[in-house]
């Protein structure tokens, strides 16, 4: 396991995690470090990727309320709205029912992205009520790509990472 900051760090990886953070900042640093192109190529070739929160935004094919120059890897058929659940004071925790898991998973949503459109090839693994009362997907998979709008990395529960490692890598 290693931290990826430059193209050199990508060598020999079997999979990659794009964690939470600010998607605008990550996008800018991907470009300035010249990591965007090589990583984009690896993902298109099928390298397994887990994207949480900002990672989900960077992997979606359409981003709303982002910056016009924001980069996306366009790896999953999703339209996501940045901060779609609201500002920090609306950030929340709730238990999630996840397909394939027996017990609920503790979902931590921080200025989380809202998935507004799901493409036909996307498998939805967990859903919650969105601010407008509709059901909204919060954990999705398409081929080699697993994305969540919540932060499994902020809990000690490794089951989402386990799904990624066992069924995708």
């Amino acid at each position: 396991m290693r931290l990826v900051k430059t193209p050199n760090d990508l060598k020999g990886l079997e999979g990659i995690v794009i964690p939470g953070g600010e998607s605008t900042t990550i996008s800018m640093l991907l470009e300035s470090s010249e990591t965007y192109e090589p990583l984009s190529k690896l993902l298109s070739e099928g390298m397994p990727v887990l994207g949480t929160c900002a990672g989900m935004i960077l992997l979606a094919d359409t981003v709303l309320d982002g910056r016009s120059d924001q980069k996306s890897f366009d790896q999953i058929e999703l339209t996501v709205r940045r901060n779609g659940f609201g500002r920090q004071i609306a950030s929340f925790e709730r238990d999630l029912i996840v397909e394939g898991l027996e017990e609920p998973f503790p979902g931590v949503f921080i200025r989380a992205p809202l998935a507004e459109r799901v493409g036909p090839n996307v498998q939805v693994l967990s859903t919650i009520e969105s601010p407008d009362g509709e059901g909204t997907p919060v954990l999705c998979r398409q081929r080699n790509v697993l994305v969540s709008s919540f932060h499994p990395e902020l809990t000690n529960d490794t089951r989402i990472h386990r799904i990624f490692v066992d069924s995708i890598i």
């Binding site: 950030s91 929340f92 925790e93 709730r94 999630l96 921080i110 939805v124 859903t127 902020l154």
Partner: peptide, 29 residues
Amino acid sequence: MGQNTTSSDSQIGTVRVKRGLADMLRGGV
């Protein structure tokens, strides 16, 4: 709502959510 929708209540302002945003800013300016 799909079959995976939870019915449990959401909690705002928890310690994990508050410290979590700070965690997300790590490595930044």
